[in-house]
Design a protein around this nucleic acid. Sequence first.
DNA 1: TGATTTACCTGACTTTAGTCAGATAAAATG
DNA 2: CATTTTATCTGACTAAAGTCAGGTAAATCA
Lengths: 290, 290
Amino acid sequence: MLNDISRFRRFSRAVTSEVGALDTSFLGRGRPLGAARVLNAIGQGRTDVAAIRAYLALDSGLMSRLLRSLEEEKLIELTADPEDARKRRAVLTPAGEAEFSVYEQLSNERAEKLLGTHAHPQALLEAMDLIASALDRNRWSFEEVDPRSQTARYCLEEYYAELDRRFEGGFQVSLSADPDAESMMRPKGVFFVTMSDGLPVGCVGLKGTDKGYAEIKRLWVSPAARGLGLARKLMAKTEEAAREIGIKVLRLDTNKALPEAVNFYRKEGWTEIDRFNDDPYPDFFFEKIL
Amino acid sequence: MLNDISRFRRFSRAVTSEVGALDTSFLGRGRPLGAARVLNAIGQGRTDVAAIRAYLALDSGLMSRLLRSLEEEKLIELTADPEDARKRRAVLTPAGEAEFSVYEQLSNERAEKLLGTHAHPQALLEAMDLIASALDRNRWSFEEVDPRSQTARYCLEEYYAELDRRFEGGFQVSLSADPDAESMMRPKGVFFVTMSDGLPVGCVGLKGTDKGYAEIKRLWVSPAARGLGLARKLMAKTEEAAREIGIKVLRLDTNKALPEAVNFYRKEGWTEIDRFNDDPYPDFFFEKIL
DNA sequence: TGATTTACCTGACTTTAGTCAGATAAAATG
DNA sequence: CATTTTATCTGACTAAAGTCAGGTAAATCA
């Protein structure tokens, strides 16, 4: 009925009025939108004036005045950065915290109102994750983390759950050769998590071994972030780290229930090799010389 | 990882920056945003000054000035409404059409850019339809149309395709008792389509018969609009129309592969009755006395 | 038909946002 | 230590958005 572009633009219109409504709801507190945005940026934990300026794309003069107006309202306190007295750091006063939480409440109420009246809020949220991930694709951050950290565990659990859904007969980590955390941390290996505005959307582990090669493990991309080239970026990061560590040979294994993964490795220049372990799950084995 | 509200707000942030970027792209034409918005409202076919004012939530004074600035640019022409000379109607001049289409092009390019770089644009569009439908739920319009019209045919094709996916052994309209168009139009019956900002999201037919009852046929709600109470509204519209026509008894049939439909009819006060036709598809038969 | 309402216009105003050229002081550089 | 760079501030602006109290002419009402 509507073509693709019309559908996109219908979405834009719907969302513009929703976002506009959020903006105007921020005006109910007797403060211009600019000041409210700065207050919220500080409330979110941004303390560096320069960082806030970059985040909100504000002119330095305008920023200076907005900060002063919040200071005069006694909502924030500005102090010189102890390391560099040219820089200024902004923190909320208790009154500022209270005011910030009112804005938080306004945002949360809008969210609850929309989600609460929908019979399938999870489907709605998945759709939102998909769109947010697509829009945010140029702001991914790749973080090297402990594979036991909260973000890493979140990714791994999502990964295991997907394998369990897709493998014939399911998947149990305990039956698989689960690498211990140290083998996926420096100096042996690494573990990367990709964050997209607070949501982990992908991960990959590089597991060092004493057999003359390292293994790629737990390459996972969230359903919301598929089709955006994230797997390739994660692999590039990992290969870069492998070179730093001094690794020359990379190996990995995968399962026939994951045809897009098998395809991906072939396309990315991996060579199929013979089985090199006795893990019960994999059907395919690949190698890449760095 | 993120809770529901945080996910919603991540979506809002992503979309705010996208919408902001669209807004600023509108500034490349040397015209303030307010004037650009009015020009676009007129280009979309809104001619009534009052309607544009309501749509854009503008003060009458501001509106008046914006219209004049567009008039001075010779992009629009203002004429008195022939039926009520107090009212003014705005239409684009040829130059205005050209300028409007530049804005259209800017919007379309943004849409193409995002969709074109995604490996699964259809999934993205489905997500957008879902969200747009949820946000637009308070602006549904219910239109009584010819079941052979383009919008009706679109709904029916979507409906048949879904039955074909869900019925064991598929679904073929030709095997079913396909009602002829006249039986679903006044004075015998009606056919309603629900529009959500240009996209048909649901339909229902009321088929008059000469057997002392009328039948509810082709009740369909788009996947994007499920969970928003649309089926109930469509049924209410249909019952209202049935009363107008003078129908006292409503009947319908449905299939065991559509358990949510069976549930819905039970919940909405329909009584299960014996088979009343020899259509090969239905398993359940219901009746409602008006 | 006179009074009232409606739809839009005009003028005078304020607020907000944004720009830009210096000024200032701390830090980094040679 | 003088010079340059960096981070922020200040003052003097402009443009855009928005507000509000009348004003005008057409339509509607009593």
